[in-house]
């Protein structure tokens, strides 16, 4: 049985910066199983965000294949890609990226509206999701009236709205204080452990990364380390930490 939700083979990304060719990702291979919580670490410019953007269909691969739920998105046209983003991916950004003119519930609902869900259905689900992330009673507040921690919770609820195959989180705790950081990590861990949500998270914070099941370290567009941690519970067949060192 194939339980991989993401399979990347020989992924290379090249672009021009002035007259210079830049290659943030080189022949990268990666497989992520359903229900895995993966942290991607690495220095600035190592290709973390580029990798996340390609998985999230907001950037294109130069070569190689990227399979999400067995669909190769690497060469799909934009007319197909938006559907993958809408139905398969949930984004969580460092700066939350909530729409300032919509309240918390409406921000969550918008994701469902784009997916064509009915009003009654999406209103109830938005309420439930905000309840899940601990924001019941704050549905009517616009982002500017919420704390940063609360704004990130709304963003998490929004990412979950269409029940995506993968949640992509780009430094979700980067703009938060220590308390809020821990709250958000706990929330993501809860979602992963209780609901089996697949999460791929880019972070600079080793403490945060250490709490996930798998830590990838990128350098110069390649995976330097791929480490399964003690936290692995859902993958089932690992009982102890396992580390793979790539060349």
């Amino acid at each position: 049985m194939n339980d991989s939700v993401l399979k990347i083979e020989n992924l290379t990304k090249t672009y021009k910066l002035g007259k210079r060719d830049v290659q943030p990702l080189t022949n990268l291979n990666l497989e992520v199983k359903k229900g895995e919580f993966t942290a991607i670490m690495g220095p600035s410019g190592s290709g973390k965000t580029t990798l996340l953007n390609i998985i999230g269909c907001i950037d294109k691969a130069t070569s190689g294949s990227v399979l999400i739920d067995n669909v190769d998105i690497a060469h799909l046209p934009e007319s197909q890609l938006y559907k993958i983003r809408r139905d398969k991916i949930g984004f969580i950004f460092q700066n939350f990226n909530l729409l300032p003119y919509l309240n918390a519930r409406e921000n969550v609902e918008l994701a469902m509206e784009l997916a064509g869900k009915f009003k009654g259905q999406r209103k109830q689900r938005a309420k439930d999701l905000l309840n899940t992330v601990g924001l019941s009673g704050r549905e009517q507040h616009r982002p500017q009236r919420l704390s940063q921690g609360e704004q990130q919770r709304v963003a998490i609820a929004r990412a979950l709205a269409n029940d995506p195959a993968i949640i992509l989180a780009d430094e979700p705790t980067g703009n938060l204080d220590v308390n809020n950081k821990q709250e958000i990590v706990k929330l993501l861990l809860d979602l992963n452990q209780k609901q089996g949500t697949t999460i791929i998270m880019v972070t600079h914070d080793e403490q945060v990364a250490a709490q996930t099941q798998r830590m990838l370290t990128l350098n110069n567009g390649k995976i330097l380390k791929d480490k399964q941690t003690q936290k692995s519970t859902l993958s089932g067949n690992q009982s102890k930490a396992e580390e793979t060192q790539e060349e």
Binding site: Y82, R86, F93, N97, A111, L114
Partner: peptide
């Protein structure tokens, strides 16, 4: 522009 990026990341089509 950033809002447009967010909407696209959420799956908004070009037509929308």
């Amino acid at each position: 522009t950033k809002e447009i990026g967010t909407l696209k990341a959420m799956g908004a089509s070009n037509a929308k």
